[in-house]
């Protein structure tokens, strides 16, 4: 049963990598037109959760997109069912040009949204013929986001888009995502609390491979309580 208004429903999702169990029965609902931010300390399994939803990691449990089970599908079919994926560390095709990176995201039977992408990232238009590997981290993040947004999608999954970027570029990425979230449902991992606060409608906290707290974006205001959920001490940075 899908909760009304959920774009993505995840139930009892468990995943292992090699011999270690990384996820222990994760339940997650991503409401339509909302931005859901996943928080959690390093190594608790946030990326593994996203990768399990996409079918990269072998997992048990139910995953439904718009009420349709996708957990038996291979990755490329899950994506075609309506997911756009912007991975941790961007994963642009380094030996390909910016234009080729974007062109790969074109889908048969769809008009590619180059207008949208170049409107969000005017910089990319000027760098079309540059090798993606030669771009700065921030520019590569733009390519990865542009590549994700080129085809229409029901759900945009983004893994730590601000990771490793300078504060100024972090804010650029956040501003872009703030515009993007008006038009699409987003599920993202974000460790930068200020960025998370600007974008989150809903928050899900993961610890030890399971959901330990969830609520609205308000949760991010009471940092002490949040630290409690995350399982870190008061003095520690989150």
């Amino acid at each position: 049963m899908t909760t009304i208004g959920s774009v993505l429903s995840v139930r009892h999702l468990s995943a292992r990598i090699g011999t270690s169990q990384i996820l222990h029965g994760v339940d997650l609902e991503v409401p339509r037109n909302q931005t859901t931010v996943i928080l959690g300390r390093n190594g608790v399994g946030k990326t593994t959760l996203l990768r399990s939803i996409l079918g990269y990691v072998e997992a048990s449990g139910d995953v439904e997109l718009l009420g349709r089970p996708i957990d038996r599908l291979p990755t490329h079919k899950r994506v075609r069912a309506g997911i756009a994926y912007v991975p941790e560390d961007r994963d642009v095709f380094r030996s390909l040009t910016v234009e080729e990176n974007l062109r790969l995201a074109e889908r048969a039977g769809q008009v590619p949204r180059y207008d949208l992408v170049f409107d969000l990232f005017p910089d990319l238009a000027d760098r079309r013929s540059q090798n993606a590997g030669s771009l700065s981290g921030g520019q590569q993040q733009m390519v990865a986001l542009g590549r994700g947004l080129l085809a229409e999608c029901e759900l945009l999954i983004v893994d730590e888009p601000t990771k490793g970027l300078s504060p100024r570029v972090v804010q650029e990425v956040v501003d872009v995502l703030a515009r993007v979230k008006e038009g699409v449902t987003i599920l993202m991992v974000e460790q930068n609390l200020s960025a998370a606060q600007q974008l989150a409608d809903d928050v899900v906290v993961i610890s030890e491979g399971t959901v330990v707290a969830s609520g609205t974006g308000e949760m991010l205001v009471d940092r002490d309580k949040l630290r409690g959920f995350l399982g870190v001490g008061r003095s520690e940075e989150v």
């Binding site: 990269y56 490329h76 994926y85 095709f93 390909l96 080729e100 790969l104 590549r147």
Partner: peptide, 19 residues
């Protein structure tokens, strides 16, 4: 193009909906 991208990162090619 898909072959060249796949040489670089086949998993990411799948992540764009390509078989």
């Amino acid at each position: 193009l898909i072959v060249r991208a796949g040489v670089d990162n086949a998993d990411m090619v799948r992540g764009l909906g390509i078989d």
